[in-house]
């Protein structure tokens, strides 16, 4: 039974696709178990753009412009608990790929001129600027995990992410191994909880939930080599979500 308590929630988006925000908003406008226990006090998309005091602030996206740092610090100062929601907010995600170039190069290539609008050279994850209390990883995070997090808050229980790997979840469903077929799959070292949704739909795991098995990385690289996957292909797929991880360092 859920205790009859209410919590206030704020939703903020930094630079990103805002998919994580839409997932969260969809849950809090349609989940019957949660709806009476949650009050949304801030969300630009839902018409409340102001930063307000809240029990929990969910922040998606990463810091890509200088003005977003101050915005994030204001959010932190008004939130009891701050949750980094989604890959971009935790490890930069696709936003981190800008670090392979300079901002001047990127702006020149895309716009043919310099914009001077405060683009940063790197994608800063939230914990490089403020204290983050919880992370919910994924691109986007699974619905069940956000619901679980909210239920834990309401019940006063500790929330923990699973330590299982995607590979474990994939093999336990009896799915064919994509790595053995010569695909670049990082499933053996990536955090599960997603129910191996990408391998299930025929796409290898490219690591949106981050690395959980650090000591397995060298074995994975060896395994990829054994299946005739070239280092260039491995690097190409690290350059989706895992640019800021040790896996990239190992592949240098």
């Amino acid at each position: 039974m859920i205790r009859p308590m209410r919590i206030t929630i704020a939703q903020y988006s930094l630079s990103g696709c805002e998919g994580c925000a839409l997932r969260l908003l969809n849950i809090i406008t349609s989940n019957e178990k949660l709806i009476d226990h949650i009050e949304l006090v801030s969300s630009r998309v839902m018409g409340i753009p102001e930063v307000r005091q809240a029990d929990v602030a969910f922040v998606d996206g990463s810091v890509l412009r200088d003005n977003e740092e101050e915005f994030l610090m204001e959010i932190r100062s008004k939130s009891r608990i701050l949750v980094a929601l989604g890959t971009c907010s935790i490890m930069g995600g696709l936003n981190a790929l800008r670090e392979l170039y300079t901002v001047a190069e990127l702006e020149e290539q895309v716009y043919g001129m310099k914009l001077n609008i405060g683009h940063l050279d790197s994608a800063k994850p939230l914990d490089s600027i403020v204290k983050v209390d919880y992370i919910i990883p994924g691109c986007p995070p699974p619905t069940w995990e956000i619901e679980e997090f909210l239920l834990c808050l309401l019940l006063g229980k500790e929330f923990r992410l699973t330590d299982r790997t995607v590979c474990f979840e994939c093999t336990s469903q009896g799915l064919p191994c994509l790595l053995e077929r010569g695909e670049v799959c990082f499933g053996p070292v990536i955090r599960g909880g997603c129910n191996a949704i990408c391998p299930k739909y025929g796409i290898p795991c490219w690591g949106c939930r981050g690395i959980v098995e650090e000591y397995g990385m060298e074995r994975l690289i060896e395994n990829l080599r054994k299946h005739n996957v070239s280092p260039e292909r491995v690097k190409e797929y690290i350059r989706i979500f895992l640019l800021k991880t040790k896996l990239r360092t190992l592949m240098r």
Partner: peptide, 24 residues
């Protein structure tokens, strides 16, 4: 919003990964 330069980060990728990344 800040640019995320998708048109650069999508280049030189295998075609099968393009819809996966473009959807982001």
């Amino acid at each position: 919003e800040s640019s995320r330069f998708f048109e650069v980060i999508l280049l030189n990728r295998e075609a099968k990964a393009v819809p996966y990344i473009a959807s982001r």
